[in-house]
Write a protein that binds this DNA or RNA. Structure first.
Lengths: 222, 222, 222, 222
DNA sequence: GATGAATGAGGTTTCATTCAT
DNA sequence: TATGAATGAAACCTCATTCAT
């Protein structure tokens, strides 16, 4: 098989056709509508019929592009993973971790998370839900989105520990995982937190402070 | 209406009858089976028929006690709220927050959360899921379970702030909410975190340290 | 489990209910309609919807009694197996195989087959079809219907061979199998054979003669 | 219309075009794949889509050559009819029916049937199935395949009757039909018969003996 | 109190088939 | 000639829910 053929094979539709311009547009329409529907529908209530109707086609057409509704979700989530790697990780890896710059970096991280969830909250929630319910495809995806960030944090923690800023017995991975949990959960549950009467800004600040003291070992800045 | 009558009314079955001994036992059987089924079934896949058959009765009987499957879930969750108030909050309110005792208290808090989730993880996950999906009854319930704890933490934070250990502009509520998010999420997602190769003990320690420095304003203990 | 309970368990409906009078009647109605529909419909075109409609109920009700349309067919075929064992085998095992009586016995056998197919032809055809298409449940059933007869014939052949009426190297089982094939096929394909312009009586006679000479080793009677 | 034109017309594709080299090749590819798929698929489960994809083309193309899947089957079966006329009939019409040669001829006939089914069993089964299910096109085809043979046998029987070897009241057609039924059924159901533990050779011999005594009126040879 | 029985309602999925390119 | 693309139509099956006993 030549490279060209291999490429074609990858792009084949479910029934073996090599998709053309029009087909790709249709597929995209399905994805767009799926995303749109998630805004107001629990992913469990996503009906193929509804997506198809919203996309102005018939269920039969949907099945020419996706085996089931979840596959469309996964396709959407796939995109997210790619974006997440950059958008969440960069503030960590390119951030300034010097004593003077570290707090600002932590603020950027918190802001990146909140922003990412602002843009993709519904989809992240779906990934979370499906992962919680035990779906391995979504668990893997969730890891793919958050893993690069987790490792970036872990490596910063390790560095700080080596500089003597953190206790020698501290486990960088566990530490990083806890930060990720905090960031992800807070970002995803703002609906609940804001019910207590606090603003997003306050929340972001609280997270930044925790990050700062947890990563640099310094007392939280005033 | 006398107090006695009011009490009866509360216990009335859906069709208006005042339940007797046998009826209460049946109802309990439904609840027990519902809990048992949650262990291996996503709550979305809970079928009235299955619960009923597992309980050795018929769906028709189920409807004499609950309007739908979710109502049984809510009944179970109700219990949880009561327990949560005590079990999670006590370590905070009865804890020693003196400089020497504070870290130990933080460890107790982390341990309490992990333990609570060990015992009621599936049910808490259900509450979380349903809340995330927008079900207000479950959102309210989730708040009921975690609220007392959140407020207890907030009040400790406030105190520490007044003592000058924390910046004056720090919002105790936002801070507390972030802690709760961290504790709850980590406890609920241990499956994912442990995949990174860290132990529960490490995780608990990481949380305790974060709590400690975040609440007391002191650098994390070595 | 007591005998009584075991009995109950056997009779349980698909959803675990212990069927009552009314339920049994409904189930029977489904079976009756299924049989009736086979008269003019290929079994492949049997639709649950149609059976249900014919029985004056809904598809949902059908599924309380049978997992799918084939299961109803199998239930019908089951009955047949029981009847076949008696009706087809008796003429052989109780038949007179003395030189004077043998031909009459062969005529009875041929008549029994033709009669059996007159009564149950459509169902036998279904069993045949499904067996030919490779469905093992129906293959087993087909064997159940015809096996006792085959063995009865084989044992008569063996006896005749021992008396020296048939060649010593003749394989009784192969011989019997060929007879069964002939009887079954002719009985089932009368539509085709009669198209040649022969009567059922002639066909029956031809079969009887072949049986006679094949089993007793004597020249066919005039 | 000249002969040439008439010929062309026969070969016209469904849309009226006179097919060229390429078109004929495509059509053949469809037929080949159809035959191949029958090996492991019930003809009821033959999907146009599958045939087309297996042939490396698209369903739309299929419909340029055949009105539906059955038409492809009929085209395949057509070939069979032609072959069957020769291969099955020759052993009868060219056979030696003298007292010394007749048994050998019967063995050839049995062998011819078994061999024919070995080569075309799946297709013959399809013809049989469709005929049994009442499809007239296939019934006619089945007759076309087997009729010449039936009549050849009938004519031999008639001759033997005239020579006094068979009873005067014996109906040659009925007799022949029964033989055909036996030969066809046994050949087609070898899967079942061999399950009894007999070999193909034994089966062939049993059929030959029955043929011999039934056609010549002589006792089966030892 | 308990439960056999029945069913409306609705989503899922599969195909044959057509059409425009 | 060939084929991507789209779709009507129809069967399947599952549940929650009700009702009469």
């Amino acid at each position: 098989m030549t490279g060209r053929q291999a490429e074609d094979a990858q792009r084949r539709a479910l029934d073996g056709r090599v998709p053309g311009e029009r087909g790709r547009a249709t597929r995209q329409r399905f994805l767009d509508q799926t995303r749109r529907m998630l805004e107001d529908t629990s992913y469990r209530d996503l009906r193929v019929v509804d997506i198809a109707r919203a996309a102005g086609t018939s269920p039969a057409t949907f099945y020419q592009y996706f085996a089931d509704a979840e596959e469309a979700l996964l396709a959407l989530a796939e995109d997210l993973a790619v974006q997440g790697e950059h958008r969440l990780t960069e503030p960590v890896s390119e951030g300034d971790w010097s004593p003077t710059g570290a707090y600002g970096t932590c603020e950027s991280i918190a802001a990146a998370f909140v922003g990412f969830w602002d843009d993709h909250g519904t989809l992240m929630a779906v990934i979370d839900l499906a992962a919680l319910e035990g779906d391995d495809r979504f668990r893997a995806l969730r890891t793919r989105v958050l893993n690069p960030f987790t490792e970036a944090i872990a490596s910063v923690v390790r560095e700080q520990r080596e500089r003597g800023n953190l206790p020698a017995d501290l486990d960088p991975t566990a530490s990083a995982a806890v930060f990720v949990a905090m960031l992800a959960h807070v970002s995803g549950h703002r609906y609940g937190i804001e019910a207590y009467g606090t603003s997003t800004a306050e929340i972001r600040r609280s997270m930044a402070r925790l990050l700062y003291s947890g990563i640099t070992g310094a007392a939280p800045p005033r």
